[in-house]
Amino acid sequence: MGRELPSGITNWLEDSPLCSRFSHAQIDTSGIPLNARLIGYMSAHTWNFPSNIISLLPSLQHIPLAGSGIDSFTWRPSSTGKYSLKHTIEALALPAPPAPWYQLVWNSLSIPRHRVILWLAVLNKLPTLDSQSMAYKHILNHCTLCLFSGESLNHIFFSCSFTAPIWSHLQNTCGFYTRSQWNDFIFWASHHWSSKSIANAINKLALSASLYHIWVERNSRIFQDISSNQNTVLLKITNSIRERLLPLSLKDGVAARRARQAWDLPSSFIRPPPRPPDEPPLQP
């Protein structure tokens, strides 16, 4: 019941405070201070509000009194009554369908820190030098990877001479091809990789891992003056993909076999077929 709550200013009365039901003059003549605690108006199992307040709002007398337990807080956005950041955000956010690229970014196989970079890229929020140079005139828009052109998402993906061999290798390994514009590619991938096949899951994993390690290499050159060659960056990408796939054990099939061969995975990546119940176990 909230026995210790201020009766006049907290939302205990049908989700509203007592002061919202009466004028200031009525509250003044009732003798109830706004900060008076509810317990002061409880008598045994009945309410003990002033008669003039009861006459104005008879429903007060019909509000059930809870037991004499200790006050506790209930977080209404959460179904359990306990604080939950997820339920709080859902309560504050406007209802809207998921973005078409939701599964492309927020899928269970991609590495969490890789998802964040891909998410920013999908929203065109990565601080590439083309946008930075427009906001700050002293910043020169110069790609630190190839040193030949201005930096943008389209350049990094489709025209940078440093990243071109990396993308080409991954596209050949995964069996997909990029488009000529970043936004067009995201639109295409969001629709063509929507099913929950292992091939699509690996494509999403490869996309986020590639973008992440290329972005790390870009930042390393700008902020630390440390650079790696294309083969080193590609090795980091393939290792992160392979390490993510190693714990998996998939049902035998064409896609699973292709993935095992493409990423040099052990035989444990593919589960053996179940043994028929009447077949005796293999002898060592």
Rank of each mutant, 00 (worst) to 15 (best):
W47G: 03
A259V: 09
L92V: 09
P277Y: 08
S78E: 08
I186S: 00
R271A: 07
T128Y: 05
I270P: 11
I139K: 11
S159L: 10
A199R: 12
Q26F: 09
F187V: 06
L109V: 04
H142F: 14
P276T: 11
A262Q: 10
W119F: 13
Y102A: 13
M1C: 15
T29M: 14
N124Y: 04
S168A: 14
S110Q: 06
Q283H: 11
D28G: 09
P97G: 03
L140H: 12
N183M: 12
N239M: 13
R258N: 09
S195D: 15
Q26W: 10
L235H: 14
I39Y: 11
L120M: 15
T88G: 07
D28Q: 15
H62M: 12
K86E: 08
L211V: 04
Y136F: 14
F73Y: 15
T46V: 13
N229M: 01
S197P: 04
A44I: 11
A25P: 05
R218I: 06
V233R: 02
S16K: 07
T178S: 12
Y136H: 11
P280K: 13
I202H: 01
D264M: 15
L140V: 12
L282F: 11
W101L: 00
E90I: 10
A25Y: 15
W193T: 00
S149P: 00
L118E: 01
W193G: 00
W75I: 02
R221H: 03
D28M: 15
N239C: 13
P272S: 15
W106A: 02
E217N: 07
S210P: 00
W12L: 13
R244A: 12
L85E: 10
S84T: 08
F269H: 04
Q171P: 02
D264G: 10
I139V: 14
Q181I: 04
D252P: 07
L57S: 06
I226E: 15
R76W: 13
A209S: 13
R3A: 09
P272H: 14
L246I: 05
F22E: 00
C146E: 07
I27L: 15
D184C: 05
R179D: 00
Q261M: 12
C160L: 05
P112I: 00
R258L: 10
L265N: 00
P112G: 03
F223A: 01
F158P: 02
I270D: 13
K236P: 06
G40T: 15
W182Y: 01
I156M: 13
A189D: 05
W188I: 01
A93T: 08
F162E: 01
T238F: 01
S55M: 08
N231Q: 14
K204T: 01
K204Q: 06
V122H: 02
N183I: 14
R76H: 13
A66W: 10
K82S: 14
G253F: 10
R275D: 11
P280L: 06
V105D: 00
S249E: 07
K86G: 04
L120P: 04
I117Q: 07
S267F: 12
V122D: 02
L85H: 08
T80K: 02
P33H: 11
I111E: 04
I166S: 03
A255N: 12
P276K: 12
S208Q: 03
I9S: 09
N200D: 04
P97L: 07
